[in-house]
Amino acid sequence: MPDIVDRSVHDGRLALKVVDLNAWYGESHVLHGMSFDIREGEVVTLLGRNGAGKSTTMRSIMGMLPTRKGSIIFNGKEMISMPSHHIAREGIGYVPEERGIFSSLNVQENLELPPVLKKGGLSTQEVYVLFPALLERRNSQGTKLSGGEQQMLAIARILRTGVKFLLLDEPTEGLAPVIVQQIGGIIHTLKERGYTILLVEQNFRFASTVADRHYVVEDGKIVDRIMNADIASSTEKLRGYLGV
C-alpha cells in the first residue's frame, strides 16, 4: 500500500483516518490491514464484492466486533479501544445494512429514540421536511414499512442526533430504482449541508453518482483507489474487481 493520503478533491480536515485495521470474528481473521481516510465534507465509498469486508469495516469502526487492532482516528481522537456506545457519542452515525428499525416502536418513536449527541441536529419537523414519506407514516409500526421507508427512517433518525459523520451500509440494497434515486438525492442534500459520508456499495453505478472517491476492498484490505472523475476510464478495471 502506498501512502494513504489521497490527492483529494477536498482540502478539509481529516475526519476519519483508519490505519492498518485488523479485525476478527472469533478465530477467523476478516480484516487484514485496512487503511483509508476521509476528509470533512467528502462522500467516499467502499466498493467490493460480497464478503470482501466492507460491512465488517463499518462494524469494526463502531466497535461492534469483539477483537480489533490497528488505529482508528476520528476527529484527531484514537478510538481503537473505546467501547461502542462511546464511539457513537463521539459523533459517528451508523446506519446498518439491516437498517435496525425497532419493530415495537412506531415511526415517530423510532425517530425520537436516538439520543441527541451534538448541537445542530435536525428537529423532528426538519426531518419530516426532508423525508415527507415518513410524515405520512409517522404512526405506523416499524414492521409495517416498506424497504425504502425503512431505509429513509434509518437515515432520518441519525440526522436528529446532530452527528455530521455518517456510515451508510448499502443504503440502496434491494430497493426499487425510483427509491434508489431518492436515496441518491438525500445523500446529495446531506453532502451540500456539510455531512461527511462513508458509504458501502456493491452498485458502482449508484456510487459514481454520489461519491467523490472510491476505495476498492478485497479480502479485508484496500486494493485500489479511484477518483470519481476517473471512473469512466476505470470501468473495465472496476468490472474486474466487482465481477459484474
Partner: peptide, 24 residues
Amino acid sequence: SPFGQVLKAIRENEDRATSLGYHT
C-alpha cells in the same frame, strides 16, 4: 417514558441501541 422506549429498543436489538450511543 423515553426510558421505556430505549428499553424496548434494547430488548429488540441491543447492538443497534449501543451503536446509537446508549450505554445499554
